[in-house]
Amino acid sequence: MPISLPLRRLWTLDKFAYSLRVFIAFSGALLFSGLMGDVALVIPLFLGIIACALSETDDSWQGRLQALLVTLVCFTSASFIVQWLFPWPWLFVVGLGLSTFCLIMLGAIGQRYATIASGTLILSIYSMINIEQHGGVDGDVAARQLLLLAGAAWYGLISVVWCALFSRQPVKQSMARVYKALGEFLILKSALFEPVRGVDVEARRVALARQNGKVVDALNQAKEMIFRRLEGQRGDQKLNRYLSIYFIAQDIHERASSTHYPYSALSKAFSTTMCCFAASGCWINRVAPAVS
């Protein structure tokens, strides 16, 4: 088997690109710590990378750059608020409650901001752990807070560059998920027409309904990905091609999910027809030697 074939299959996996970006970010942070001669710098850098990776949104590179700027502003605010209010427990509790409310309201704007808000909460927890481990706020802790933000900015930069170079890869993967789920749906749908008696039709209907939900989810995710990239790029031929492929899948799903006939009656009729064909075939096999 050629070496390129396993690599191409690996490239089509959903989490491979995400894992590769995190690996590159971790390697860069480790290299920086080695050059600075202080391995302890790896911890805040890694925590910042993890927080930013959890806040990553699916978008075009322009949208991801805007999301990165919002993420860094939220991270910076959360980090320094935790650092300033940590010595006063009551103020810290009040500030934590207000910041949580603001982040919840930010997440209500849309899925992109909800992801950023959850990542900001995670970075706030990392900041509290960082301060607690060093026994309070001092100059060293402030430097480590900056390293948290530097790690987040480093991964964000990798994410934006990656999205600019491979902007179509998530769309391809989403369309592959759509057609995979649609194929499984069609197989389950065809099982309702099998000319076999004594089959539990209700169990097959339940399995078909579950698979239908997976197809709908895959279609919605693919639609959101395509439409986010179509903003400002209406004339992009590749995106229009993906949109046409999406509409084909949607049309197939609409036709296949429609119900026009009681399947149990159809299955029974097909079973009777098959029995008639089998009986006629046996009769022909018996008569043919006698005639010859």
Rank of each mutant, 00 (worst) to 15 (best):
P87I: 06
A164W: 07
V196S: 08
F166I: 13
R205S: 08
S190N: 13
G183C: 12
Q145Y: 09
P170F: 01
I125E: 03
P89K: 04
Q133L: 14
F193D: 08
G119P: 08
L121R: 13
S99V: 13
V70Y: 04
M105L: 14
A150Y: 04
V199H: 05
P195W: 04
Q169S: 13
L157M: 15
V82Y: 00
Q111W: 13
V199E: 01
F86L: 12
R177G: 11
K214A: 08
C102M: 12
A142D: 04
A152R: 04
W90E: 11
L146D: 01
T76C: 13
A203P: 07
R204F: 11
L68E: 01
Q133D: 05
A164S: 07
L157D: 02
I122V: 11
S159N: 08
P170W: 01
S118C: 14
L186D: 02
V178C: 03
T100R: 10
A176P: 08
Q173F: 10
L208A: 10
S174C: 09
W162Y: 07
F80Q: 07
V160A: 02
L165T: 11
P87L: 02
D200V: 14
R177W: 06
F193K: 15
Y155W: 09
M128S: 10
Q83H: 15
A176C: 14
V206G: 03
L149C: 01
F86H: 11
G139D: 00
W90M: 13
L69N: 05
L148G: 00
L103N: 00
T71L: 05
V70H: 06
T120S: 06
Y179F: 15
W90K: 14
Q111T: 15
A114C: 09
A209E: 05
Q173D: 02
Q169K: 10
I104P: 06
Y155P: 04
P195R: 12
T120N: 05
V161M: 05
K180I: 08
G156A: 02
M105S: 12
F75Q: 01
F185V: 07
A153S: 07
I131D: 00
I131F: 03
P89D: 08
V199F: 04
A108C: 15
V82K: 04
S127Y: 02
